[in-house]
Nucleic acid binder design. Structure first.
Lengths: 339, 339
DNA sequence: GTGAAAGCGCTAACAA
DNA sequence: TTGTTAGCGCTTTCAC
């Protein structure tokens, strides 16, 4: 543990620790000669700053948490990657956590943020309701994915309504007339699901399709397995009912869509010939499926950057959460909706 | 920042800070009465330990790094999830990092581990060679994936040779006779690729298949895109050459296999009717592809647990890296090799 | 432009 | 069983 300290460097360079500190932190007010000498000494001694000490002094931990529903979902992996990158630019470490898309997991993430002393938390929330979120945390918090602007918590929203509307409009444009919206468990208040549902409804209304030709299909978990089960069921109904069954599906997430497509195949249907399918998220594997997946792709870079930067602002100034922002998106059309 | 400190709690409870420390850390030698009183005071004051201070005192940062090639690869997401879980049991935070599967990225991860002062690093390495790894780091390091036992660095190995051999034997068992091994860039020394290649060769030899019926196909990157390009090429050759083309493919990773299958489809082939395909890793999406993917699935739980625990041992005792261990695996047979 | 003093909150070592 | 002392490595403040 022969760790080299600032004092060691200072002694070796014949200056005070304070001067070393100034050099290390690139502060002004150090003559070029001294700066150079200190730099050299740092090089020679192999000095590295002690982050724990600096953090203690600064009253921070230097770590922000990132809590996502599922780490093995490529979407959140991509998100994590970018957030880590942006945070690194600010010399922050990112501790990742998984919530399992359940309120209990999200509560747990907030709790462990406190236990492990994170400076702030970026929470990609699915389950926790706003009431709880606004009371619970004594912790700079950025929410990812929700839309509604509720006072105490900062948001970076996904283009839930607009994106879903675009996807549904596209399904209709490609000839679908009997639509299904396959989503997660129902909730009491604005969630990703309800907002995307609104978007799809808007598209249906705009196209003059009757409400009876849009079905809402529950799906307890947002997993491929769950999606596949639903797909199989919808597929079997379609097969039994002939051409009167569902012919266009919007899946709440790409992950769900992957399972859904496979379930439809299990039931003997072809995508897109018999049923069109579109998802939401823009996960990478979507491009290489058979059929490849049409999806709403939010701008992940933008999302990550804004989330981190705004969290940093909140940590630094403990000011108000600020305005909601909505990520830009594009609709990526692929084979699952006919090309 | 009205943070409550141990001294505050001590004063309020009428004891010394040291006693509070002992209670907080569950150390023995505190009377039940005092312990209870301190606990209550902690509750009342809302005291939370200052991790930065504790770390400074302990000479650690409380953070370990986890560097993986690609965060948006579900395989590494799963790995990360489990590692975070195990580390959490030990009150450790996990900072994730992406190397991009390139030596430069892996070097960068080691560098930033030092910059950000990680207590240790779990590195899922692909590119960096051992010579460099053993000289470079002054940092407790656990390697994931490699096999060769080289003095200074700890390893948790994947069942590279045995797993690949099992997969290849299975391809042959299902009737494949002209095999291809599709892997990453070639390397000078034992890597995941060369070890899996050895396994495949062993299977081919054991089956009495001629060396000329096993092809080694390079693939610069381990991405779906790259795999797709290779798949398309192999597929076109097969179509041109008739039944004499490749009829069984082992892909170095599942990610590659996903692209590969799609590339074969692009070329007009059917999997598994025309070509059998097997991968390695057991990524979740493999089960829901069309066709679903046969794969070698290492025991991820085991891998994560051993990696963290052994890293902790190394951090604590800075002892020798210890023996290599190889993760158990199973061959999961799915549609891409005929069911 | 440079340095000395003091203290961030915690805990090891020793004393009582 | 409990308390006192001292110091982890850094940086804010103020003096020179």
């Amino acid at each position: 543990m022969g760790a080299v300290t600032m004092s060691d460097v200072a002694r070796a360079a014949g200056v005070s620790p304070m001067t070393v500190s100034n050099v290390v932190n690139g502060r002004a007010g150090v003559s070029d000669a001294v700066r150079r000498r200190v730099m050299e000494t740092i090089e020679e001694t192999g000095y590295r700053i002690n982050v724990a000490a600096r953090n203690l002094r600064a009253g921070r931990s230097g770590v922000i948490g990132l809590a996502v529903p599922e780490l093995d979902n490529p979407y959140f992996g991509e998100l994590a990657r970018r957030i880590v990158a942006v945070a690194g630019e600010h010399d922050l470490r990112v501790a990742v956590e998984e919530t399992g898309a359940a309120p209990e997991g999200e509560r747990g993430a907030i709790r462990s943020s406190k236990r492990l002393d994170y400076d702030g938390l970026i929470l990609s929330t699915v389950g926790l309701d706003m009431a709880e979120l606004t009371t619970l945390p004594q912790l700079p918090l950025m929410l990812l994915g929700e839309r509604e602007n509720r006072s105490a918590v900062g948001h970076i929203a996904l283009p839930n309504a607009d994106g879903a509307q675009a996807a549904a409009a596209h399904l209709i444009d490609r000839g679908a007339r009997r639509l299904a919206f396959v989503g997660g468990p129902d909730d009491r208040e604005p969630t990703i699901r309800s907002m995307r549902w609104d978007g799809v409804q808007a598209a249906v209304r705009a196209a003059g399709i009757g409400e009876e030709d849009l079905r809402l299909v529950d799906c307890e978990m947002l997993t491929m397995d769950a999606g596949r089960a639903v797909g199989r069921r919808l597929g079997e109904q379609r097969v039994a009912g002939g051409p009167d069954g569902v012919d266009g599906i919007f899946a709440l997430t790409d992950t769900l869509a992957v399972g859904l497509i496979r379930g439809l195949v299990d039931a003997g249907l072809r995508v897109p010939e018999d049923v069109l399918v579109a998802g939401f998220d823009g996960i990478g594997v979507g491009a290489h499926l058979t059929p490849s997946l049409t999806t709403v792709e939010p701008d992940h870079d933008w999302t990550a950057r804004r989330a981190v930067e705004r969290l940093l602002e909140r940590i630094a100034m403990s000011g108000p959460p600020g305005e909601d922002e909505i990520a830009p998106f594009r609709l990526v059309v692929r084979e699952s909706t006919g090309g």
